[in-house]
Design a protein around this nucleic acid. Structure first.
Lengths: 165, 165
DNA sequence: CGTATTATGTCAACGATGCTGACTTATAGT
DNA sequence: ACTATAAGTCAGCATCGTTGACATAATACG
C-alpha cells in the first residue's frame, strides 16, 4: 500500500515527519543517554559471561566493593529492587566465594557484606573497560567540563531521599 | 534458616576497605551513570503500565517517531536486539494501532515504520517527564556546559559504525 | 531464466532479572 | 511477653533478552 491508495475508508493517519517538538522536549539528550548507557553496560558482559554471571551480579559486586560492610538493606536501597530479586543473585555470589557475610557486630540480625579477594578482582575487571570508555569520552575535557558532566549526572537522580536514620 | 552458627576454621580473606583504585578506575562516574539512568528510565514506567506496555515498547515508539519511515532493519541496528525480540513487541504496537507498516516503495521487502497519531502522542507523553528531569539536571548550566555533557555522552558510544549502504 | 541473497516474519525453547504474596527464623526493642 | 525488624525462602508470574530453525516474498545476479 503506497502512499495514497484509496482504501475502503478508515485510513489511519500516518505521520511522516519527525516529531517536531524539540522545542519542548529534549530528544537529543534522551537518545544520547540511551546510546551511552547501552554501550556502557555492554562492556562488562563478555567478562561476566565467562563466570556465568549477569548484570545483576555486576551491580552487587560493584557496590559491595565500594562499601564493604554494607548490609542487605543498604544494597536493596541502592539497587531499588526487591529482597527476592536480590536474594537469588546474591546467593550465587556468596556460594561462588565472591562475597562473604558477617553477622552485624551490634545488630546480629544484619548481614554485613564483604568482598573476598576474588570479588574485588572481579569488580575491578568489570570496572576497567567502563573506566576506559569514560576516559575516552572525556578526552581533551578540562576539569571544569568534567565537573559539568558530574553535576548533570547528579542532577538526574531522584531527590526524594527518605530520611531514615 | 541457615543461620550460620560456628564456622569451622578457614577464615576466607574479607576485605574491609573500600576499593582503593580510584586512581586508575573512575568509580564515581560509573556510579553516577548507574543512578542517573536508573532514575531516568523509571519515569516513563508509570505511564507505560497504563497501556500494558514496557520499556521495550517505549524505545520502539520513540525511535519510530524520531525517524518515521525507518525500516525494521534500521530499528534492529539502533536497538541492538534480535529480530525475534523486536517482533514480539513491535507486533503489539502495530496491533494496538500505535505504529503502521508500509511496504518500501523501492524495495518492497522492506517494511517502513510510521507512527500513528496515537503513537506520536504516546511517545511525547513518555518523553515529557524525562525531558523535565533533564532540564532540572541542567538548571543553571550554561550553553557551554550543556555542550560538554553532550560531547561526553556522544563519546560514550561505540565508534564501530559498520558502513552498510 | 534460475538460483542465491536479502528483509521480514514466525515457532519453539530457554535464560536473566524483575515483580507480588505468603511465610519462617532470629534478634532487637519496649 | 509482645511486637517490630532484618533477612531468608518458596512459589508463581511478567518482561525482555537469547538461539536455532524455518517460511515467504522480493531483489540481485550469473
Amino acid at each position: 500500500m503506497p502512499r495514497q491508495t484509496s482504501q475502503k475508508a478508515v485510513k489511519p493517519e500516518l505521520l511522516a515527519t519527525p516529531m517536531g517538538n524539540a522545542d519542548i522536549v529534549d530528544f537529543e539528550i534522551i537518545e544520547l543517554l540511551f546510546f551511552a548507557y547501552r554501550d556502557f553496560v555492554s562492556d562488562p558482559d563478555a567478562i561476566l559471561g565467562k563466570s556465568g554471571f549477569g548484570r545483576a551480579h555486576h551491580r552487587i559486586v560493584h557496590f559491595v566493593n565500594r562499601e564493604p560492610g554494607m548490609t542487605v538493606a543498604d544494597l536493596l536501597e541502592t539497587l531499588k529492587i526487591t529482597k527476592q530479586s536480590l536474594a537469588r543473585v546474591l546467593k550465587q555470589l556468596i556460594d561462588s566465594g565472591y562475597i562473604h557475610q558477617v553477622a552485624g557486630p551490634e545488630d546480629r540480625r544484619q548481614r554485613k557484606l564483604y568482598p573476598t579477594q576474588a570479588g574485588r578482582d572481579l569488580a575491578l575487571a568489570l570496572a576497567e573497560p567502563q573506566s576506559r570508555r569514560i576516559e575516552k569520552a572525556f578526552e581533551n575535557a578540562s576539569a571544569a567540563e568534567r565537573e559539568s558532566v558530574k553535576r548533570f549526572l547528579r542532577g538526574m537522580r531522584d531527590r526524594n531521599k527518605i530520611e531514615t536514620n
